[in-house]
Design a protein around this nucleic acid. Sequence first.
DNA 1: CTTGACACCGAACATAGGTTCGGCATATAA
DNA 2: TTATATGCCGAACCTATGTTCGGTGTCAAG
Lengths: 222, 222
Amino acid sequence: MDHLSARQKKILSFIQTFIATHGYPPTIREIGNEVGIASTSVVNYNLNKLVERGFIERSPDVSRGLRLVSDAAAEMPVRFAEMSHLVHVPLLGSIVASAPVPIPGDGFTPQDTDDSVELPPAMIGKFRSEDLFALRVHGDSMVDAMVADGDVVILKRQDTARNGDMVAVWLNERGETTLKKYYLEGKRVRLQPANPLMDPIYVDAEKVNVQGRVLAVLRTLQ
Amino acid sequence: MDHLSARQKKILSFIQTFIATHGYPPTIREIGNEVGIASTSVVNYNLNKLVERGFIERSPDVSRGLRLVSDAAAEMPVRFAEMSHLVHVPLLGSIVASAPVPIPGDGFTPQDTDDSVELPPAMIGKFRSEDLFALRVHGDSMVDAMVADGDVVILKRQDTARNGDMVAVWLNERGETTLKKYYLEGKRVRLQPANPLMDPIYVDAEKVNVQGRVLAVLRTLQ
DNA sequence: CTTGACACCGAACATAGGTTCGGCATATAA
DNA sequence: TTATATGCCGAACCTATGTTCGGTGTCAAG
């Protein structure tokens, strides 16, 4: 099966853009630097995976001896997407009301998952893609945030919020994760649902743990 | 002047064919071998001449650090360049409850607008991008469809629907546009809100004008 | 003739960059 | 549990490859 890990997708798209901008392919070390791989052997390892799956070809003992497989264009829309300029955001898991958000670095690292979401660069704005992660919403517990079952939420990892930010918070007193707009008012926090028909809740500021800021919500049907 | 020696022309054309066949540029020694130059320094010398005359560019200390300059590159297969870009969907206008949806070909053509939305190819699935258009939601009239003020809805133009499709419909009896899930039940249509807490409405099948099918909903914050 | 620019050679040098290998986790299979 | 496979790390290894430099021959100008 030609499923690629997030890391391999990242490598592939980096090779593509590198060739486009430089006119020659990147070295193993250049790839490792960009993708965040410490050892050249690991890059080598993943490049061989890409060869096995037919995305690239290599010439042994040749520096920069890489080429993208030419018929990848004609192949599948899947591969079409693999090599585009898209930003890959790791899909870390799911978000439910009854548990804290899985956050990268907190036992969840991007390498742990091979699932990822592709985003147009315009959607993530000026933020670095390393700070971003995605979660799939399960269940209808976020309906008051106008987020439906199956939606994907794009988050930027941060533990503080400014007024008006839509954030994912963990309310330790209630044992509950929720998505709300954040407003600090004195010593308490007003958490305002996105749905204008719903009422806000008020929580003591110390009981609010900001997990991340919501940058986008994606819903694809069918 | 622009004049190149026979040797330099030979070098240039070799670089071109080498890149075309290998996917990466040749080394100095590979060039020398092919063109019949014994010393690497002489190849280096002539390459610098080609740089001076603007035919190629070089990156110092980089193996195979060559690239053909624009017009030479224009002859190269640019297969990956254009396919790597995002799908552009025209943003035709806004969708409100009180007016029919602006549909391409119905007085609204993609050329009429210069605004567009970039999408990852994965999000539009197998559909042709020509059939797609986007609308921005204004106001809170779509909250029962879990669509908020400011969201962008990606639609595929079609005037029929299958059961379960999320569609944009114009209800001429009510004079209202709405986003609902479509279920044909006998001679009437059940229009089910996405929000599971809301109740469906029932409309005579002839009074329902399907404007398009919703493929995705995008919400970007900040 | 001398000088100097031009094109080239050969060899030595330095480093950019691919390859290999032992080891360490984690997960799934036996 | 013990295996086996996968993904990763770090270091050592070695060669592929760009750079430098002292020479040689030619030719035209001073």
